[in-house]
Design a protein around this nucleic acid. Structure first.
Lengths: 358, 358
DNA sequence: GCAGTTTAGCAACGCTGTTGCGTAATAGAA
DNA sequence: TTCTATTACGCAACAGCGTTGCTAAACTGC
């Protein structure tokens, strides 16, 4: 820790983010409600709400009469007090969204990217579209195909893009944009969007994305899960047919090759069933209780995939799984990238800030 | 929160457990080393070490001369200051171990269980073997086949045991033993043992267990991962052959049925290759960088499985995966159950104690 | 023996949430 | 209208956390 007094500050930040997280899930709230939900004393909540009001994150919006006694002040989040920009760098297009603190998408633009674009070309496009979006964001999030290193901000080998080998994209973008930048896999950004919008009940979920490849973003135990090399969720390249056709990844009978082959043959139902088998495999492995379906290719026939998935999931008296389509549709990746920025700044920190990696 | 002052206490507990965690990974340590590793100031470390010494968890064991200046006091963990009992309730045997605070197995016993034993029979056996083990444990951990609910301490339907439907085993055992009891799936307990012994570098790992069924215990992001219904890691019932033979779970071509069929036919190499395919699927999904092989059936031919697994895992310049056998062998489940008790009492808490599930 | 260096810890401090208690605001009864 | 009970709010004092300032202790090297 290089800043003195860090530990009490972390305690304070932790409690503040706890209250912000609660504020995001409720249209309105009062002091007693926050105290009850968080376990803090009402007086402590007063102090926290005072600080948050001072930062403009929260405001009083009325009083609540509940019979006898002095009416309680009603607070609410000020969604417009903070903004973030999220970017989805796909293979041919750049999608840029502006979101507010509540996770609402305020603006969304799509511009084409040059074929087989270079890092420089992407940076130019990002700067152009970010400037055009405006909004004075607290940061910019970038969602992109992997493999990449989230912690280091380096793109190892963007799939099907020749000019991308160990590119320090986060650092480059940070210099170009002069705001904090987060880099993450597209699917992880996507599941963050769902988790951010659906609140703390969404503790374990997977976002299944079918869009020039099949991948999954994982949200496990209340946080984005990326694995040891930011490469978790490559479930398109799990084998479901040992003697199946050869896949580009080197193995045979991968989910992706079987799915894509069926789609190419016009057998969409079979493709959806194959995907559903893979999803149930994922459920067996991770035991998430929320499945979110997303991706351009999937959302062209949402009802087919949704039905096949629901049909494939077994039920029991103690197990339940929700299957839904991505609420934000095509914006989900970009919006999630923006929410990762907000999450870093206003979300509940996963550690207390002390290095535990000794 | 029902206890006042809870939040500052949590800060204190957090820092204390941070120091204990560090003490577990180092034979000896001094104030400056802890301060450097944790980010706390030396004076804060003094206070923490003073409290831990008072609790008997840590002791001074000498001084270190490093040239000029006053020598630094050398501290070390007192492994014998705390003990825990771990229990592995398998289908036919009850394994009971006693471990110390460092995770060393001090005693290990195996006793038979009646065929198709009842909850009452298991409780009797647990009480008997726990009493016999002695050691005044801080708690008892039970590792068992699922499905079960870790948080509620309820066994839903122990696989292949008829008398087990929604049994509140944790509560029953707690009343019978008069110490805190933890209940978890066997594989999760097992991976906890590996993680506890290998320290903070083991952040993402999977323990593969082949023993009357195939399962995986997951350790993701530095903590045991159980999923939404304590049912994560059921990877024996992931489909790897869409048109494969029917499995007991209702689907076809599960990893387990293919593996067991090959073993029954004497084709151990094929069985190991099938398992290895499943393991690579697991790596694709979770991106863990540690694979631990365990289970009685697997450890009968460890080299076959180890070789097949190593051969199946692709390598790249940014990706590395370690494949090892369970260090504790047959004790791994029971020892892990004991370490879960120690982890709850002396491990780094995952939350700051405030309810965030509003 | 003295100077220089490093460690250890007491004491004061700032900041956190908590507790005690006074004040404000309301409904309902007198 | 007036009084009382009730509920909400917040100032002030407090306990406990890690931090900072400073002094004492213990050692090496000259």
């Amino acid at each position: 820790m290089d800043t003195p007094g860090a530990h009490l500050e972390h305690l304070r930040d932790y409690n503040e983010s706890l209250v912000v997280a609660l504020a995001r899930t409720r249209a309105e709230f009062d002091r007693a409600g926050v105290a009850e939900a968080t376990g803090l004393t009402p007086q402590a909540v007063s102090k926290v709400l005072g600080r948050l009001t001072g930062q403009g994150l929260v405001e009083i919006c009325g009083v609540r009469r509940q019979g006898v006694g002095k009416p309680a002040s009603i607070y609410r989040l000020v969604p417009g007090s903070r903004h973030a920009v999220g970017i989805h760098a796909a293979r041919r297009t750049l999608r840029t969204v502006l979101t507010d603190l509540a996770g609402t998408v305020l603006a969304s633009t799509v511009t084409p990217l040059p074929p087989d674009f270079t890092p420089g070309q992407l940076l130019d496009a990002i700067r152009r579209d970010t400037d055009r979006t405006g909004g004075d964001p607290v940061g910019v999030g970038i969602g992109m195909v992997g493999p990449l290193d989230h912690a280091a901000g380096i793109v190892h080998d963007a799939h099907r893009l020749r000019h991308w080998h160990d590119v320090p994209l986060r650092q480059l973008a940070q210099e170009a944009l002069a705001v904090p930048v987060h880099l993450d896999k597209d699917v992880t950004a996507g599941v963050t969007a769902e988790a951010w919008r659906r609140g703390p009940t969404f503790r374990d979920g997977a976002l299944i994305m079918v869009e020039s490849g099949i991948g999954a973003g994982l949200w496990l135990g209340g946080a984005a899960y990326r694995g040891a090399h930011t490469n978790a969720g490559e479930f398109g390249h799990t084998v479901v047919q040992l003697d199946g056709p050869r896949c580009v990844c080197g193995r045979s009978g991968c989910l992706e090759i079987l799915h894509d082959t069926a789609v190419a043959a016009g057998r969409l139902g079979t493709a959806a069933e194959v995907l559903a088998t893979g999803i149930v495999n994922l459920l067996r492995t991770t035991d998430v209780n929320h499945v979110v379906l997303a991706g351009a290719d999937l959302l062209r026939h949402p009802e087919v995939y949704e039905h096949a998935t629901r049909a494939a999931i077994p039920r029991s008296h103690w197990q339940d799984v929700s299957v839904t389509l991505a609420e934000l549709g095509a914006d989900v990746i970009a919006a999630g990238a923006a929410m990762q920025v907000l999450d870093a700044a206003y979300g509940i920190p996963s550690t207390m800030g002390v290095r535990a990696s000794f």
